[in-house]
C-alpha cells in the first residue's frame, strides 16, 4: 500500500521538470536527435516529405553561421519544446489537447487532438510537429517501436514530451517505495545520449538538483523569454 495516490503529488511537493542546455558544450553531433527518434516512435518522413519541410524532429539542432568563408564560425543550438510555464500553445487549443500538467510539462494529448493546428502557429519556437499522413516505418524499423509511447495517427499534433514515459516510470518506482524521484533517476533520451553532457535534466523544485544549480549560472538565459513564455529550459552560453 502506498502513501499517496496522485503521482504528481509526492511527499515534499510537486515536481517541476526542467532542462539545462549548455551551448558551450554542444558540438552539434545530433546524437540527441537520433536518440529521440528511436525513443519516441517518431515517424520516418522520407526524402519527399522532408524536402517539403515536413521532417519531424522533436529536438533539432539549429545551425547559425557567423562571418563569411573562410572565417566562418558555426554555432549550434538544440531546440526542443521549451515546456513553457505560460505556454502560448495551451489556451488556443479548442479541445484541451494542449495543456499543462501539474509537474510542469507542456502536454499534447494525441487522442484528443482534432488537428486545428493553432498551437503550431502560436508556438514561437516552431517545435510542434503535425502528422500530415498516417505514420509509417520502413522495414525493419517498424520492429523497434517503443511500446510505452503512442504511435500518433494522421491529423494530430505531436511534440517533445521530455520523455514522459521515462518520467512516469521513475515516478511509479518512487511511488512504490514512498519517496521522491531522485536527481538523475530520470533522463530523457536526448540527455542520455549527449556525449558532452551538454543537456541536463531534473526537477527544478529540488534546489539541490543539477538542473537547479546549473540554471542559476550567470551564463543562463531562456530562449525568447522576453515573450513571457517562462520556458523550463535554460540555455547556457558564454557571451564573448
Amino acid at each position: 500500500m502506498v502513501e499517496y495516490r496522485d503521482q504528481n503529488a509526492p511527499p515534499g511537493g510537486p515536481y517541476r521538470w526542467g532542462m539545462v542546455i549548455d551551448l558551450d558544450r554542444c558540438t552539434g553531433c545530433e546524437a540527441c536527435v537520433v536518440a529521440c527518434h528511436a525513443e519516441n516512435n517518431i515517424r520516418i518522413s522520407g526524402e519527399e516529405e522532408a524536402s517539403k519541410g515536413r521532417a519531424v524532429n522533436w529536438i533539432r539542432i539549429e545551425r547559425y553561421w557567423e562571418g563569411e568563408y573562410p572565417n566562418a564560425q558555426v554555432k549550434f543550438m538544440p531546440v526542443l519544446c521549451q515546456h513553457c510555464g505560460s505556454a502560448p500553445c495551451e489556451p488556443v487549443c479548442p479541445v484541451y489537447a494542449s495543456y499543462h500538467t501539474p509537474d510542469g510539462l507542456n502536454a499534447q494529448v494525441y487522442n484528443r487532438c482534432v488537428g486545428v493546428r493553432y498551437c503550431g502557429n502560436n508556438c514561437p519556437y516552431t517545435v510542434r510537429y503535425f502528422n500530415w499522413f498516417e505514420p509509417h516505418w520502413d522495414e525493419p524499423l517498424n520492429e523497434q517501436l517503443n511500446p510505452d509511447v503512442t504511435v500518433r495517427s494522421v491529423g494530430v499534433m505531436e511534440k517533445c514530451t521530455f520523455c514522459v514515459q521515462r518520467i512516469r516510470g521513475a515516478q511509479q518506482t518512487a511511488q512504490k517505495e514512498g519517496r521522491r524521484v531522485k536527481d538523475g533517476e530520470v533522463t530523457p533520451a536526448c540527455v542520455q545520449s549527449c556525449p558532452t553532457e551538454a543537456l541536463v535534466f531534473g526537477d527544478r523544485n529540488d534546489p539541490n538538483s543539477r538542473v537547479s544549480r546549473l540554471s542559476k549560472d550567470d551564463r543562463g538565459f531562456g530562449l525568447l523569454e522576453e515573450l513571457g513564455t517562462e520556458p523550463s529550459i535554460t540555455y547556457l552560453k558564454r557571451i564573448k
Binding site: 504528481n8 495551451e90 484541451y96 495543456y99 499543462h100 500538467t101 501539474p102 510542469g104
Partner: peptide, 9 residues
C-alpha cells in the same frame, strides 16, 4: 466543472 487537471492554471 472540468474534471481533468490543467496544470493548476
Amino acid at each position: 466543472l472540468y474534471p481533468i487537471r490543467t496544470g493548476g492554471k
